[in-house]
Design a binder for these strands. Sequence first.
DNA 1: GTGGTCTAGACCACC
DNA 2: GTGGTCTAGACCACA
Lengths: 127, 127, 127, 127
Amino acid sequence: MLLRIDVNSEETLYSQLSNQIKYGIARGYLMPGEDLPSVRGLASELGINMHTVSKAYATLKEEGIIIINRSKGVKVSDEVLISRDDDYGKIFDKKMTELIAEGLCNGYDKDQFMNKANQLFDEIGGK
Amino acid sequence: MLLRIDVNSEETLYSQLSNQIKYGIARGYLMPGEDLPSVRGLASELGINMHTVSKAYATLKEEGIIIINRSKGVKVSDEVLISRDDDYGKIFDKKMTELIAEGLCNGYDKDQFMNKANQLFDEIGGK
Amino acid sequence: MLLRIDVNSEETLYSQLSNQIKYGIARGYLMPGEDLPSVRGLASELGINMHTVSKAYATLKEEGIIIINRSKGVKVSDEVLISRDDDYGKIFDKKMTELIAEGLCNGYDKDQFMNKANQLFDEIGGK
Amino acid sequence: MLLRIDVNSEETLYSQLSNQIKYGIARGYLMPGEDLPSVRGLASELGINMHTVSKAYATLKEEGIIIINRSKGVKVSDEVLISRDDDYGKIFDKKMTELIAEGLCNGYDKDQFMNKANQLFDEIGGK
DNA sequence: GTGGTCTAGACCACC
DNA sequence: GTGGTCTAGACCACA
């Protein structure tokens, strides 16, 4: 799977990285249980520091999306796409509420929001 | 409209402020063309620094949601809820894609996403 | 409150730090809402790196024990000693089970365990 | 006695192993003087590296919980559950103090701590 | 002033 | 080989 980093983006590097990995999983490019590149390997491939990759991985680990094993490396969690932390529900609600409110302020009414969601779901996964 | 700031939140103060104003507009608490409090007035009311309010207003102006007029003060844009900057389309797509991807990683499939969106739209628009 | 770091300990520096802060709170040396030293201030005081202190603070923040505010600094959570994350219950059970098992292997039966707990609670807090 | 290793756990493999053996002894599944599997045998049974089992056994020997004899193999110490190294007293105090402090920070007061200890002792000893 | 991010390079523990 | 810890020093955003 191809990962790209834009050093000029306002988004932090580690956030770009974790978002792209989430997207890769959602998209099916990365399967549950699949190995991810090593911290140092990915860092040198992307031309960024090892600690930045490490932080991206650490946040994904906290969210239960990947599994980190000190000596064996990093892999996508086997339960990703299935399990759901109860605490995550609140975070998800807050994020979606913010997106809805911001969308409404920019002229996206309910129908348009739903259509856009439909379209993006179709783009992400034929499955 | 009542604005609340949580100084213990991880979210920056100015971000909390702009998000709440967007929510207020979406919810119908703030109408297009309606006046907003002055920078100084809102700052003292919330007990926060003037620069913080100023920054929140500046980002909302940047997004075309409010109008700042040196002599006449601050008001909600008349075209809010209607007009849409083309540039915003890309940002909105990116944000929604991230939300969908993250949701999928946590077990929210398309149906659950849509149901949740429906529910939150009802909460917002039911006023 | 006095914090001490032993660079020769097997325990990581940031873990020593977070444990001592927890102890300080339990002991009443640090009260809910009280300010903690700045990241850089504490680092120079202890003669360790800023990032090490930062990591200790970050883990305590994750556990809901302290509040970190980018521009205002760090303080003990107002709800510490009261609130309890549901997820923490499992972690606590696991830690206590391990302690009980290890104690039994070294000749601490139930009575001795309870007496020791009693004694240490008395030492920690007259309250 | 059944030992289970979770390669996805954050805990190191050798630590999982030694903790489970301690638990087995506490629980009565392993009796003082009882033979333990050979390093090679246990490693192949669990599908892990020989060095990992060896390290787990070495730490248990260090703690005086098991006896390793080059020619006769490995067995649970005859004095386990009875004898106590004086050095262990300090370690035990430190571990319990940390557990108490962390518990207090999460709202477990003395009564709740004692009740939980009681409950877990009953679960362990009920065999 | 505060904490957060990123870089660079060291050493250690685990397997 | 892997990730984790610690150091040192830079720059940025927030208030």
